[in-house]
Structure formats: structure tokens, C-alpha cells
């Protein structure tokens, strides 16, 4: 089974479904655990981060106004998000997220041009890990300040305003709206400048580094809360591990723990996006396996790893 081909088609299908599905009447709700950007007109579902920052299901509400109905609807939306995360775990990131797919396509372009990937030292990668949790914290705090401390309302949806997906994803629906700078007031100007700078930064970054944005993604930080209860489990037969480092090298988000682990069998990491490239690259039979509801979906195999390399062609 050529996993990377299956993954390519699932990613492409999800991309088109989520970006254009709304035009066909598909409505998947507001609690999707992936970057299905609400700013794309005609999208099939909305990224949960927008709901989390907003006034209907999120933290942009005055504490005094927390009525029974508001709490219920906010918790209901969170429950929907939690359910989707528990069932499919991080496969949302590695297989469905349209922004992740865009990053993979840009990465493929770099590969085709034979340009080497930017290397981050282990120290730098470890230092970048907390950034996504920090972004998640501010994403929740700033709307609270708008609702309770009189912070200017133009700071609303703070993460969405700065997210690089906001200018980039609507391009696929033919809209370049968010490349325009809003000169309405100093707040909109500053937010606009930061947004465009970050978009440029991440666009350049994702060309030179696989899944560059995923290193900072606050949705991944939120989903990692459910790592222990997610139905997708990632198991390593530690004694069978050769230590060859293939898994570490092919990992787009620089997870080293799958390679380093020598004791525990459960190796699902908070940074993992469940792309399963490590399982595909592992040259030992059944050393790594992906399980769902305790049934093995996919295991590493010597023959498959060999065939990956036997092609001998440049991409």
C-alpha cells in the first residue's frame, strides 16, 4: 500500500471539499479541528479557532453576561470540537487540513527544484515548541479583554487577523481581499501590517521548511490536550527499533521522540501531525504501527521502505 499516494489524494480531496464544498451546499459546522478558513467564501466548514475567539461560542464575552444559554452553546461547540478531535486525532492535521495541504504542495515544489530543506538545530526546535501554547493563550485572552476590559474591538479575532491562512486561502476562491491594507484606524493598520508581514514570513518559511506553520499552530496545541484520549494511537515496538533515524529525518515537524524512545510503546507526541511518514519510512517490520480503536491500520514494513528508495528517481 503506497501510503503517500493515498495521503496525497485524501489531502487533495479534503482541500477541494473544504474550500469549495460550501458552494455545493456542504455545511460541516463551526468546530472543525483544521484550518478550513472561514474567510474563504464558499468553504464547507469553519476552523474552530474562529469560534473560540468570537462572541457566540468563544471568549469575546463579558463575564457578567455569561448566561446559561451562552455557556451551553459555547460548551456545545467545544464538545463538538472535542469529539472530532478524539475520533480522528491529529489526522486532521496531516490528512485533512487545507492549509497543511498547501504547505505540503509548496514543499513538493521545493523538492522538485532540488533545493535543500532549511535545517533547524534541535535546540531551536525545542525553543519553538512553546510558541504555539503562547499563541493559544493570547488567542483566548485578547477577546476576554475586549469583552471585559474595554480593549478596542478592532483587536477582535486576534489570531484570525494575524493568521497567514487569512490572506492566502481566499486566493483559491479568487479573492485577494486580505492582501489589502485597512487604513481605517491605527489598530487596523498595525494589525494589517503584522498580518501581511507574517504571511510573507510563513510563505517564504514554508517553501524552505516542511510544514513550517505547524510548528506554531495553536490549533495543534489545543488538539494535543486530547492526545491521551484520542482514538488514533501510535505504537512503537521499542526492541525492534534499529535506531536508523529514518523516522526522525522524514518527520515534517521535527519530532525526535519517536526515534529516541526506548522504553514506552505509546509514542504519540504533541507536535505530531499524524502524517505517518515515519511509519512508511521505518525499515523494520512492525516496529511502528498506527492503531485506531485498538486495530492496526498501518504498520511499518521492510519491503515497503525498500520500495520507497528503489524507485531511484528524482521527484
Amino acid at each position: 500500500m503506497k501510503l503517500h499516494w493515498i495521503r496525497f489524494w485524501v489531502q487533495a480531496g479534503s482541500f477541494f471539499l473544504l474550500t469549495y464544498g460550501g458552494r455545493l451546499g456542504l455545511k460541516l459546522g463551526h468546530c472543525l479541528p483544521c484550518f478550513s478558513c472561514p474567510y474563504v467564501s464558499g468553504c464547507a466548514g469553519h476552523c474552530y479557532l474562529m469560534a473560540l475567539q468570537g462572541p457566540f461560542w468563544g471568549t469575546q464575552v463579558s463575564l457578567a453576561a455569561l448566561g446559561e444559554k451562552y455557556c451551553l452553546s459555547a460548551l456545545g461547540m467545544f464538545a463538538g470540537f472535542a469529539l472530532l478531535t478524539v475520533i480522528f486525532s491529529k489526522t486532521w492535521c496531516g490528512w485533512i487540513c487545507p492549509f497543511g495541504t498547501l504547505q505540503d504542495w509548496i514543499g513538493s515544489l521545493r523538492r522538485k527544484l532540488g533545493i535543500r530543506e532549511a535545517e533547524f538545530s534541535w535546540k531551536l526546535t525545542d525553543r519553538l515548541k512553546p510558541v504555539k501554547y503562547l499563541l493559544l493563550f493570547f488567542l483566548l485572552l485578547i477577546p476576554l479583554l475586549i469583552g471585559n476590559a474595554g480593549l478596542h474591538s478592532d483587536f477582535e479575532l486576534p489570531f484570525c487577523q494575524l493568521c497567514p491562512a487569512k490572506p492566502l486561502m481566499p486566493v483559491f476562491a479568487g479573492k485577494f481581499t486580505y492582501f489589502l491594507l485597512d487604513l481605517t484606524n491605527p489598530v487596523t493598520v498595525v494589525m494589517g501590517i503584522i498580518s501581511l508581514s507574517l504571511t510573507a514570513f510563513f510563505l517564504v518559511g514554508m517553501f524552505f521548511r516542511d510544514r513550517f506553520f505547524c510548528l506554531f499552530c495553536p490549533l495543534l496545541a489545543l488538539m494535543s490536550l486530547f492526545d491521551r484520549v484520542g482514538l488514533i494511537r501510535f505504537r512503537k515496538k521499542v526492541d525492534a527499533c534499529l535506531g536508523c533515524g529514518n523516522c526522525r529525518r522524514v518527520c515534517p515537524v521535527e519530532v525526535r521522540e519517536v526515534h529516541d524512545e526506548k522504553e514506552k510503546a505509546d509514542v504519540l507526541q504533541p507536535e505530531c501531525i499524524s502524517c505517518f511518514r515515519c511509519v512508511e519510512a521505518c525499515p523494520q517490520d512492525n516496529a511502528l504501527s498506527v492503531r485506531w480503536l485498538n486495530r492496526s491500520l498501518f504498520s511499518s514494513a521492510r519491503e515497503r521502505a525498500g520500495k520507497l528508495v528503489e524507485k531511484g528517481k528524482l521527484p
Binding site: P167, F176, T177, F179, L180, L181, D182, L183, T184, T188, G192, I193, L196, S197, T199, A200, F201, L203, V204
Partner: peptide, 15 residues
């Protein structure tokens, strides 16, 4: 109040 020119310049310049 949205302007394309400054937006593209900022984006392009940063990139």
C-alpha cells in the same frame, strides 16, 4: 479604507 498598493508593497517587501 482598504488599499491594495500598500498591502502588496508590505507583503512583497517582507517576502
Amino acid at each position: 479604507n482598504r488599499r491594495m498598493a500598500p498591502g502588496i508593497m508590505i507583503f512583497g517587501g517582507c517576502a
